[in-house]
Amino acid sequence: MPVEWIFGLIGGLIIGTAGAVFLLANGRIMGASGLIGGLVDGSGRANSNERLAFLAGLVGMPMIIAHVFGFVPETAVTGNIAALVAAGLLVGIGTRVANGCTSGHGVCGISRLSLRGIVATVFYIGAGGLTVVVFRHLLGVI
């Protein structure tokens, strides 16, 4: 088994543990888009401190790992600004209209056999796959 798969599995277990902590301690679903979106559109004003604390950990811990421990992961993010802006807008609008992303619908939804979580995951993976096929193999731009 390639080492990347093993790291994937270990990292996944840590992500699931994060979701379990957030659920069992605070009674909340760990969905990245919902936690951010609620701050952006004001719908999460009632518990904004909790949201900010979560995001501080989400941004801060990788910062410590990268800049204090010197483990800087590769991201290989495209330099195509038009693609970045379009993708950001699509992700921002899409996750809020669908009420969830990979963490909320994917991890937290599927793990309790939520039909909505499963259907959302099928559609965003399908749309993502189609997008890569079109933009990489047909148009050759990504």
Binding site: A98, C101, T102, A120, F123, G126, A127, L130, T131
Partner: peptide, 18 residues
């Protein structure tokens, strides 16, 4: 519809919110 839009953006650059 939201999941389709999200998936398109996700595929385009390989980033999701988390």
């Amino acid at each position: 519809l939201g999941s389709i839009l999200f998936g398109m953006g996700w595929g385009l650059v390989g980033l999701c919110p988390g």
